[in-house]
Structure formats: structure tokens, C-alpha cells
Design a binder for these strands. Sequence first.
RNA 1: UCAGUCGGCCGGACGGCCGCCCCUGCAAGUGCCGAAAGGCCGCCGGGGAGGAAAGUCCGGGCUCCCUUGACAUACGGUGCCGGAUAACGUCCGGCGAGGGUGACCUCAGGGAAAGUGCCACAGAGAACGAACCGCCCGCCUACGCCCCUUACGGGGCUUUGGCGCGGCAAGCCCUCGGGCCUGCCGUGUCGUAGCAGCGCAAGCUGCAUAGGCAGGUAAGGGUGAAAAGGUGCGGUAAGAGCGCACCGCGGCUGCGGCAACGGAGCCGGCAUGGUAAACCCCACCGGGAGCAAAACCGAAUAGGGACGGCAUAGCGGACCGUUCGCGAAAGCGAUAACGCCGCGGGGCGAUGUCAGGCCCGCCGUCCGGGUAGGUUGCUCGAGGCCAUGUGCAAACAUGGUCCCAGAGGAAUGGCCGUCACGUAUCGUUCGCGCAAGCGGGCGGUGCCCUACAGAACCCGGCUUACAGGCCGGCUGAUAUC
Length: 146
Amino acid sequence: MDRLRQRADFLAVANGARVNSPAFVLQSRGRDDSGPIRIGFTVTKKNGNAPERNRIRRRLRELVKRLDPVSMQPHHDYVLVGRRDALSRGFATMLDDLRIAFAKPARHTHRGRGPRTGPRTGPRTDGQRTDGLKPGPAPATSRKPD
RNA sequence: UCAGUCGGCCGGACGGCCGCCCCUGCAAGUGCCGAAAGGCCGCCGGGGAGGAAAGUCCGGGCUCCCUUGACAUACGGUGCCGGAUAACGUCCGGCGAGGGUGACCUCAGGGAAAGUGCCACAGAGAACGAACCGCCCGCCUACGCCCCUUACGGGGCUUUGGCGCGGCAAGCCCUCGGGCCUGCCGUGUCGUAGCAGCGCAAGCUGCAUAGGCAGGUAAGGGUGAAAAGGUGCGGUAAGAGCGCACCGCGGCUGCGGCAACGGAGCCGGCAUGGUAAACCCCACCGGGAGCAAAACCGAAUAGGGACGGCAUAGCGGACCGUUCGCGAAAGCGAUAACGCCGCGGGGCGAUGUCAGGCCCGCCGUCCGGGUAGGUUGCUCGAGGCCAUGUGCAAACAUGGUCCCAGAGGAAUGGCCGUCACGUAUCGUUCGCGCAAGCGGGCGGUGCCCUACAGAACCCGGCUUACAGGCCGGCUGAUAUC
């Protein structure tokens, strides 16, 4: 399991399916290659100052570590968007939340513009390149969340 | 013991399970990911957030850009003196002013006799000093005084005159009962009017009071944040630095101090209101941007250049503009080039026609710039600790010793347990107290399980935030010896 690090990957996953939970939002997106599961974390500035944001991210990261990798789907990218409740919610409760979120059939919400992005499952011939990098230069309005 | 003041320090501890990042060493496979640059995978050992890492307010290092350098101007900043420092608006030590019983604290602390401006309201007057009340000299006028009343008016007191009444005394008359007249005292009423002196009188003079005129004055009242030196004594018609003493202010001289400044003597009688966080003047300092700096490596796509191959749809006109040649210019010439004009071709929508619009070779190799991305910059440094020396200190010097975070969607943790600490509540116990209650110890439970807050190139500062706790110096008060 790898960490998600490139900004373009985050933007791609943000247009994919999402599941809400009291302490976080789970975004997911299937990839076409055979790479490992990748997961990233996003905690925006409205959730508190830097120590609080760090704590939210660390607890979410610990949740993922405790969870069985079997419950995730292979060749998918996931992003956990932290909420303020992740500071105070019980750890065991949050673990159940995450388990439910992975099991739940995700709703696809295409909140982007046009059909340009999105995880099309159509036939691709090459398989040489990752399509996640396809949506080129990001719009300058969406900033790095942290 | 209480109250205060200054300075320094800490900012949970231990353990269990599971992890993350970096570094040294060893060991790998023709391993994995990637087009490449590059990255990842094992073991041992070591290290891994703060006093503010924060705000990004100053000062530097470092990097790039610009500039030959100096000066001037503009703009910005700083502003008592000396020292420390790489530098500072920082720090240390002094000086001055203000506050505090004191330890100590605060100060945006150069220049207001270079110039300009402003000083609201109130107040007579706010800057070429002013004259409201008041005080005073002089002149003129008027004259009972006092109280109440805005005024009209009313009341009281005093002087004097008339008319009465009562009493007393002297004198005269008498019918001895009393009557008349004079004086004095008390009182009622109606008038009159300053007081004193001189004068027969008219009046004059002085004093008091009121009003007016012309001056003097800046002591007092009142206004204000501020009223033109302050206090006291003298002085004066009243007053005034008008004079004197002390204090303040200014100037000069000499003394102490590196200096800011201090204190002394003499002189000047006071001239110079405040505001520079208003403009301004003076002195000093300052090129700009910032690690997302910058260097190196380097895809895809688009675009640039060179070469090669293939295709070959351009032609004509004119010299109007550019260009080129000649010429000092006007101009003349050229058509090779770009634009221009005319005719024509190809391409662009699923197709055809018409009208309009847009574009005008294709492919390959190489080169250069350069984006995403990657690597470096990146932590040995104005470094920490200890000792010695110099210095009041900030600090500096010498010696020894240590290596102490380097992430990059961003590691330094997550989940628990035990114990401290704090706090709330309950129980119990002890002390004081009549009691209400107060203080302390022990135990149980709950809460917070810590406050402020997370390195982002690195240092020196400043500012701001902070639960709780520890240590030391000093000051004041109280108690005991």
C-alpha cells in the first residue's frame, strides 16, 4: 500500500465516488493499471490550527493501518478527507465507520465539468501509461489543502 | 509570616503493543517502478519539534537580478551618551524627566531664538500680549443710611420741624381744687433729610456714598489642558522683577566626566506658551526580490532552428507601404523578400451544392530553450556544553569536549495501562471557634487526562499566546529572639 503524493492524483480521486461519515469523507477511484492500493489524506485549514490538523491526519492514518487491506478493492486510489470530529470520536467507533465506508457501494458523484475526467472503464489498448495523470495542468483556483 | 518587585528554569513521568522519517556501517539481484532523470526493497546501531517552532515586525548570512563607482535628489527608516555585535529599531552600562514609602517601573528622550501651520469649546483675552468683574489717582454730578424686592414698592434706624398725649422740674396766677408758661424725658402722627468744620446767612471746605468721564494696574475673581516665571518680604495711590532673598530660566567662566550631563561662581531681571505621533530642519542608515531564491537532470504535447527524404500550385500585376541600391534631399531604380491587387489550387463539418469564414506543405533525424517530474540547495553553524581569563555588565578571548531533526499532500506518532499534578464533589479525621464556618491530612468518584501551540533555508532579536509548577536576589510591613 502506497501513499498518494501527487497533486494530480488527488484531483482525480476528488472527482470519483465518495462516502460520508461523521469523522471523515472517503473518496475512491479505480485505476486501470495493476499497481498497489494507494491512499492519501486531506485535512483542510477550516478544521483547526496546525497541531489539530496533524492529529486528525495521524488518527486517520492509524485507522487505515489497523484495517484489513482485504476490505479495500485492489488497484484503487483512496483519499480520506478529515473532519473535526476525528479529534474527539472514539477510536473503535471510527474503525467501524471506516469498515462500513469501505463496504458500502459508493455513489458516483460527477461533480466536475464534462466527461473529460472520471474513471472510464472502457477498453484501453496500451496499458502503458497511468491515465490518472491525464488531466493536465490543474486550474489555479484549487489550492493545496494543507 | 504577609504583601510586593526583579531575574532564571521546567513545561508531565514510567511501561506495553503497533508504526513513521533521516543518517553511519554491512549486505543484496544484472530484483521492482519509471520513457528518462531518478526512486524503492534487508539487517545492526544512532538520532528525531518549541520556549515561543507562532506573528512575519526589524537586522544579517546565502542565492539570483540590476548597477563602473562616487555624489546629489526623491522615498523610507532611525533619533540622549558610551559600549557590545556580522548587523539591528536588539542588548548592557550610564544620563535626564516622570511615578512609587521602597525594591523598582515608565519614556516616540535631537531641533520650537530657520520658516510655515494649528490651538476646538469656554473665556475679556490663546500670541505684534489681553482688560469682563475688581483695585487705585484725578475731574464732574448727585446727596440720609441699612435690609427685603427684578422692578414698582415695603419695612427698620437716625437727624430735625409741626401738631398731640403722658410724666418730671423751675417760675407766675389763684377761689388752694387747680390753671398758664418754659425746659427736659418718653411716646403717637405728619413732614424733612448724609456727616463734620467754618460762617449771622448765602455758601465754602473735608469725609462718606452713588453715578459718569479720562487714565493707571495686572495682586485678586472667573474661563480653560494651557493665562506670559513661582513663593515670601519690602514697596506703591493701587499694583507690577519695581526692589530684595530663595527656587526656576538664560548667558559667561572655570571644575568633574570619553560623553550625555552634573555641580560651583558671576552676570542678566525674565526675553523663549504648547504642538515635530503637523509640515519641516539636522545627523546617520538603506539597490531590488526572495529557498516557490537558485543550480543541475529532464518526458508527453505545442511551438523554434538545422539537415535529409518525399510531394511540389502557383501565376500575373503594380511600385502604394516596408526593404534594398544610388543620392545631401527631392527623387530615380530593382522585384529578390514581406505586405498589396487580380486570377487560381489544396485543406478544415458524415456527404453534395451554393454563399461566407479560417489555414497553407508532409515525414524522419538532430539541436537549443523549457513545462510536469526528479536531484541538489539542506543543515558544522556568527553551533551547543564545560573550564579559565578580561570586563560592573552586554559580551569577548583561549582551551577542552560534543554532533544535536532535516520532512516535502509534509516524518517526529496511534491505542492502552500505572502514577503524579490540577480541579470539582462526597466521606472520614484533626485543629480553631458558642455557632455559622475556616484551614490541614487521608480515602473514593468524575473531569482535564493537559496550557499556548507543529520545524519548512539558516542565524541574532522584538512582539504576541500560555494550564500548572520550581528556584534565587531584593524591598516594605508585622511577630519573636
